[in-house]
Amino acid sequence: MGTTTPSHLPVMYAQVLDGLRIRPDGRYLDGTFGRGGHARGVLERLGDGGRLLLMDKDPEAIAVAQAGFGADARVSLYRGSFADLGVWDETTAGLDGVLFDLGVSSPQLDEARRGFSFGKDGPLDMRMDPDSGESAAEWLARAGEAEIADVLWTYGEERMSRRIARAIVARRAEAPLVRTAELADLVAGIVGRRDTGIHPATRSFQAIRIHVNRELADLEDGLAAAHARLKPGGRLVVISFHSLEDRIVKQFINARAKAPPGNRRMPVAEAFAPTLRDIGGARRADAGEIAANPRARSAVLRVAERLEVAA
């Protein structure tokens, strides 16, 4: 924890690989390939008998995976959400480790045409899979004012959610919002330029992105699918960058690792049989890594181990 992590490595790189506890002959799934930083680290530790399964919603990420890893006989690729990992035949043999690195990737933010960034004008899209579902522009063009406000508040904790939603509905009556700069300017005009160093549209963009991509629903489904596919002793490793994500992960692990509190007013409950063991609780990047990679500041890593369940 005391060493500096180079900025070119993924967030909490060493801790992720330690958490997975990689065996040379193990079978591991990276549900969020991104640009392959963690995948490369896993492959370096696998022997000829090991397997690495790579998933991503983003076709550009899968193209990078194919170019960089497709020729490796130990690697299999699947384009899709990690929520669907259980339907992939490659997972039916069981997994020794599953990794989810949540949120939007740096390449997605850097490409203006993907529509994730309020700092770079581009089409108002925000879809991690641009071939599936509604874009942000399409959703904002049809959603009701109350629905928009609810999304901004629930997923972005934006205190001015109602005012922003009202302004969006009024604006689209004149002309649809189709560019990221248009939405960013509209939100900034309501929220104001706060002296915090954080762009006033940050919370709104985050909320709309989470909603458009069903990120929290996919996380819940993906955790359940990973739990079902992990072998006894297998590790679940999740990096979150948002409190709502981390809360879901924490509650998922706790519900399977800790017996619920007793209630003397209720009938005696069935004996609790844990199926996960929490490994170390919440972990955060150290000062050295944050200095090299500011994105690590909000990262929370959680690790759990699948337990043998008596028949």
Rank of each mutant, 00 (worst) to 15 (best):
M1V: 07
T3R: 09
T3E: 10
T5C: 11
P6M: 12
S7E: 10
H8M: 07
Y13G: 05
I22R: 02
P24Q: 06
R27M: 14
R27E: 12
L29Y: 10
G37M: 11
G41I: 07
G41F: 05
V42I: 14
G47T: 04
L52I: 08
E60Y: 04
I62C: 03
I62T: 05
A65E: 10
A71Y: 04
A73F: 08
V75A: 04
G97M: 00
L99M: 09
D101K: 00
G103T: 05
V104A: 09
S105I: 01
P107A: 04
Q108P: 09
L109S: 01
F118T: 09
P123A: 07
G133T: 11
S135H: 07
A136K: 02
A137E: 05
E138N: 04
L140R: 00
L140K: 00
A141V: 06
A143W: 11
A143V: 13
A143T: 10
G144E: 14
E145R: 13
E147H: 08
D150F: 05
W153H: 13
Y155R: 02
R159T: 08
R159L: 03
M160E: 11
M160G: 13
S161C: 07
I164M: 06
I164H: 01
A167R: 15
I168N: 00
V169S: 03
R171W: 11
R172S: 08
R172G: 07
P176M: 11
V187C: 02
A188Y: 04
V191I: 15
G192E: 14
R194K: 15
D195M: 10
P200L: 12
F205M: 01
R214S: 14
E215M: 00
E215H: 01
A217V: 06
A217H: 07
A217L: 06
L219W: 02
E220D: 14
G222T: 09
L223K: 00
R229P: 08
R229E: 14
V238T: 05
V238D: 01
S243Y: 03
E245T: 12
N254M: 15
P260M: 13
G262K: 14
M266A: 15
P267R: 07
P267I: 10
V268H: 04
A269H: 05
E270I: 02
F272G: 12
A285I: 05
D286N: 15
G288C: 09
A292Y: 08
P294M: 13
S298E: 08
V300E: 00
V300H: 00
A304T: 10
E305S: 04
E308P: 00
